[in-house]
């Protein structure tokens, strides 16, 4: 919550407001303001004026944001959040590019993610793996978030429509619907999903929060949790938590429809297709036909070599302990 209050101070946000207004995605922003209004009464963002008929038969014109506050029942706000999360952001197709040549296993992405999503230390929406394909090939660090497949095996097997794919490509889970069968965990070839085996780590302090599927907070015991591509941040025009936390410029995030991705560290925006083409980008286990929305750039010309002490763990998976 404290983070929300800080936001207006940030310069980048104002810059962004200006741009977005012009590009004509004002509606998206108004949407985000409404949610913010529901969640945090302190927020004062101007929205459209609407006419409301009161119980006393008085016709009033009020700010739209104030109107949504009337929905003071948690259930109403919840269904609004659930609906909004399923609709996604119009016209977008989010993509992430992970440059393996820059990853130094700093793990700032992992901690930022766990902070944002209120996860336990062993729960990873994004996990930096020490990888090695075979004995003589190079070991490398690989950050692995949910791949947000366009042909998602996890969504296919969900019996209750708790996990779903949105029009903008993000695969989300609604933990108010999830029955905890864990079929999606079994179906995911990327081991991207985690389960709340016990009460969530911040259950006590989160108990009055309205559930937001775009952030998947509060987490709920007995339900599955997963990387959300920081759908809540995308709605605000900000880069995902992991992307902005990286100190090494590993992540690019953006909209495939705009053919542009922005680096989380340098905030430099480049053309997505050219980046992939110039660096021979690839997708993880593309032979499975999952059509992922995460692209990898190969670990070539690395700025820092793979650490010697990490080699045994990297080799474990291929049954090679590098002895």
């Amino acid at each position: 919550m404290s983070e929300q209050e800080e936001k207006p101070k940030e310069k980048t946000r104002r810059d962004f407001l200006k741009q977005v207004g012009i590009v004509g995605i004002g509606s998206v922003l108004a949407g985000s303001a409404i949610i913010a209004g529901i969640n945090y009464d302190k927020r004062k963002t101007k929205g459209a004026r609407i006419k409301v008929l009161t119980a006393e038969n008085e016709l009033l014109e009020i700010d739209r944001n104030d109107a949504t506050k009337v929905g003071k029942f948690k259930a109403e706000n919840l269904s609004y959040m659930q609906k909004q999360a399923r609709e996604g952001i119009k016209g977008k197709r989010w993509v992430m590019v992970i440059d393996l040549s820059k990853c130094k296993n700093a793990r700032k992405c992992m901690s930022a993610c766990q902070d944002a999503h209120h996860l336990r230390p062993e729960q990873h929406h994004i996990n930096v793996l020490k990888m090695q394909e075979s004995t003589n090939t190079a070991p490398y660090y690989m950050a692995k978030p949910c791949q947000h497949c366009d042909n998602p095996p996890c969504v296919a097997v969900c019996p209750v429509d708790a996990t779903y794919k949105r029009p903008d490509g993000i695969v989300l889970i609604d933990n108010e619907v999830c029955i905890g069968c864990r079929f999606c965990i079994a179906a995911c070839p990327y081991s991207a999903r985690v389960f709340n085996w016990t009460d969530p780590i911040r259950a006590e302090e989160d108990k009055d929060l309205v559930y937001n599927p775009e952030l998947n907070v509060p987490q709920k015991k007995g339900t599955v949790s997963k990387c959300c591509f920081s759908a809540d941040r995308c709605r605000e025009g900000k880069l995902p938590y992991c992307v902005s936390a990286c100190p090494n410029g590993v992540y690019y995030f953006g909209d495939e429809n705009e053919d542009a991705v922005t680096n989380g560290t340098t905030k430099e925006t480049v053309r997505f297709r050219k980046l992939i083409e110039d660096n021979a980008g690839y997708r993880l286990m593309s032979e499975l036909g999952t059509d992922t929305r995460v692209y990898y750039l190969p670990p070539k010309n690395r700025t820092q070599p793979f650490k010697e002490e990490d080699k045994p763990e990297a080799g474990e998976h291929i049954g090679n302990n590098n002895a």
Binding site: I22, D161, K165, P167, D168
Partner: peptide
């Protein structure tokens, strides 16, 4: 300085969930 010009490629890609698919909603 900022200005809006109609010099880009018109882009109106369909939603990724528009088609019937095994993973889509009921």
């Amino acid at each position: 300085s900022q200005t809006k010009l109609t010099i880009g490629v018109p882009t109106d890609k369909p939603s990724l969930t528009a088609k019937r698919a095994i993973w889509n909603v009921l």
